[in-house]
Every structure is written in structure tokens, then in C-alpha cells.
Design a protein around this nucleic acid. Structure first.
Length: 220
DNA sequence: GACCAGGCACATC
DNA sequence: GATGTGCATGGT
């Protein structure tokens, strides 16, 4: 017997198909994107990452070496560029001092220790940390974000009072412990959040799955 | 011009 | 422990 959240995942993947996240060419690019997309439209992040690629700077050592002001200019399109420049520098210094800028060394660490370590970096909160862990390092941890909360509360799949850890635990306990499912479910929720379940709309009226979930139409 | 976008740290009560 | 605020560009 599948849980309600697992059923919801099934409906989304059947309707929308695999999202094949994260949209990046390398694991390191995932990490940079995870910081740059904090409270920011992904299109703006793409412009910023495009600037880094243009100057061949999407590389841990090169980004560690350039000064914060130059980095800020390059990532300006993603917004909050001064603070994000510092946050990237914080990560890169930690990455260099503890793992010699070697992403394979990061991947070899156990999830719980690594999550604690990454969360201790100033500027890396829970969502950014979990995004890095899941999408760059292939660790089994679910990524909660504003879309996750909005969609699942509006569908009454979780209570409105739930917080980040509560939502994360609820989803992880109701889904199979499977990297592909964690990967796809989060990406599907972002898709639904962007295209159907918008903030300005009180209800997800346009969501193709809403009527089914309310039991008012046959299964899709 | 208002509102929104794949948060986070910090101040204040 | 909850709540408020600054950070900033670019699209709708």
C-alpha cells in the first residue's frame, strides 16, 4: 500500500515525466548553482553561471583565487551578488582546507557527518546543503523548498504548521529510500510550483492533478 | 510600479 | 523560540 505522498509522486511522474535534474554539466556546477539560486529565479542564475563559463572560471581553484569583488561582478545577474560572492568564497575555503578541492573526497563521506559540516558554513542553509548533498554528491537526503511547502500544504498532504525538518522527515518516511525518487520528486515539485501552483493563486486550480487528488475525477 | 523568484544570517523582542 | 529585516537582479 503506497502512502499518499508516494501516490502523489506517481501521479506527477506519469503526468510530467522525468525531469532529469540538476540542470548542470558538472557536480561542481551544481554546487555553485545551489548557492546562486537562493531566493532567485533560475533564469537569472543561468546568466550568472554563463558569465563564469564565458571566462572559464567554473573551477574550484580558479574561483578560490579570484577576489570577491570580481566574483560579485560576474554573478551579478543572480542578485544578492555581494553576499552570494562571500557565501561561495566561504564554501570554497572550507572545500580547500578540508577536502583539497576534491569532490570525490566529499562524496566518500557519510551523509550525516557531511550534512553537519556543510551546514556549519556561513551562507549554506538546509535547502542549499540538501541540494548539494542530493544533486552534486548523490547522497540520500530530500530537498525541501518553498514550492514543496506550498504545494503539499495546499493539497492538504501535510499540515500548515510543519517546518523544514518536519516536512523533510515526513517525505523521507513516506517515500522509498531511493536516490532517483528523491531527485525526481523535488524536481517535479519545482515544475508544478513554477507552472501550476503559483504563489499568487490561493488554490492550485490549474494543477492537472488537483481534481484527481480530491477524488472528483478518475485517475490520470 | 508591484509582485515574484528553487534562502540565509542576524537583530530584536 | 517566534518574528522581522536586509540582501538585488530581472521577468511578468
Amino acid at each position: 500500500m503506497k502512502t499518499p505522498l508516494y501516490k502523489y509522486y506517481d501521479q506527477l511522474i506519469k503526468k510530467l515525466g522525468p525531469q532529469n535534474w540538476w540542470p548542470a554539466e558538472t557536480d561542481f556546477e551544481v554546487i555553485i548553482g545551489a548557492v546562486l539560486t537562493q531566493n532567485t529565479n533560475w533564469k537569472n542564475v543561468e546568466k550568472a553561471i554563463g558569465n563564469l563559463k564565458k571566462y572559464n572560471l567554473l573551477d574550484p581553484l580558479k574561483l578560490l583565487q579570484i577576489d570577491s569583488e570580481t566574483l560579485g561582478e560576474l554573478i551579478k545577474p543572480s542578485g544578492y551578488f555581494n553576499i552570494k560572492s562571500k557565501r561561495l568564497k566561504n564554501f570554497l575555503r572550507w572545500f580547500n582546507e578540508n577536502y583539497s578541492l576534491d569532490i570525490d573526497k566529499l562524496k566518500s563521506q557519510p551523509l550525516d557527518n557531511l550534512r553537519e559540516e556543510i551546514l556549519s558554513i556561513s551562507g549554506i542553509g538546509k535547502e542549499t546543503a540538501d541540494s548539494i548533498l542530493l544533486y552534486a554528491l548523490s547522497k540520500l537526503t530530500f530537498v525541501v523548498d518553498a514550492y514543496t511547502y506550498r504545494i503539499l500544504t495546499r493539497h492538504e498532504l501535510v499540515p500548515y504548521e510543519i517546518d523544514y525538518d518536519g516536512l523533510k522527515n515526513e517525505i523521507e518516511s513516506e517515500l522509498p529510500k531511493d536516490l532517483k525518487i528523491y531527485n525526481e520528486f523535488h524536481a517535479l515539485l519545482v515544475n508544478v510550483g513554477k507552472n501550476f501552483c503559483k504563489k499568487s493563486e490561493a488554490l492550485c486550480d490549474k494543477c492537472p492533478l488537483n481534481k484527481f487528488l480530491e477524488g472528483k475525477s478518475p485517475a490520470i
